[in-house]
Amino acid sequence: MTTDTLNRAERSRSLFRFAAPQVFYPIAGRLAPWFAGIAAVLTVVGLYIGFFVAPTDFQQGEVYRVIFIHVPAAWMSMLIYLVMAFWAAVGLVMNTRLSFMMSQALAPTGAMFCFVALWTGALWGKPTWGTYWVWDARLTSQLLLLFLYLGFIALTRAIEDSRRADRAGAIIALVGAINVPIIYFSVQWWNTLHQGASVSLTKAPSMATTMLSGMLIMALAAWAYTFAVAFWRVRSLILERERHTDWVGAELEAEAKRQ
């Protein structure tokens, strides 16, 4: 019995080790440039497919090419909020400081993607639907997501005491997460001007293969970009929060020498 349980205990402790800001800080620093590179390569490939390989759409013509940023941005804005809520929950339950920092490092990127989804959606809506904006359930709930992001960012920055800021932010993240399935299923639950999903887990995608592959590659690029930016941002947060520790002192001195 003993070796097996010991191994398991050791392994779980080693996993937990990554929750220590001191351990995670250099890992994030090493990974971020790789993710940024992957994002850049995928973006070039995705845009090439999107503009030069994917054909003209039968009903929308060329304007449908907005899809290569609109859909990845919209997916990312929903996913990032769920991940934020997940880290907020982990932070509340396990009392791990790094979880809260991760959730705060993701928020601005999520807000950026949310705005991009709304902006490109408006520019896409005008030539196809005939309007930049309507208050249907899909568009309204996506706008609400942007307000939730901005509210989260403003609240966590407004509260000086970082422990209280973490908790207040976690509550917005968790409560607001209810909105994500509402956005996703709004086109099924209610009559909306926005059409249903072209790609979902439950049915075959209703898109030509080259169009679909361009869109999925751009979605992967958005994932890689999010990892890179969130890792860079969390490093600043860690330094800020852990500034009284010896290891941050050593890190800062090393950084000073490098410059």
């Binding site: 003209t56 013509g61 060329e62 304007v63 090419r65 907005v66 940023i69 609109h70 941005a73 601005p108 990127t109 950026m112 705005f115 991009v116 902006w119 490109t120 520019l123 896409w124 005008k126 030539p127 970009y225 930016v229 860079w232 941002r233 490093r235 600043s236």
Partner: peptide
């Protein structure tokens, strides 16, 4: 873009600007 230049390039240019802006802000903050 089949007469849709403003809609397509308006989408892509603002997105590109926001991504560059975010990268600059993140690296400057560090």
């Amino acid at each position: 873009m089949g007469g849709n230049a403003w809609f397509v390039w308006g989408s892509y240019s603002i997105t590109a600007m926001l991504i560059v802006l975010e990268l600059v802000l993140v690296l400057r903050r560090r």
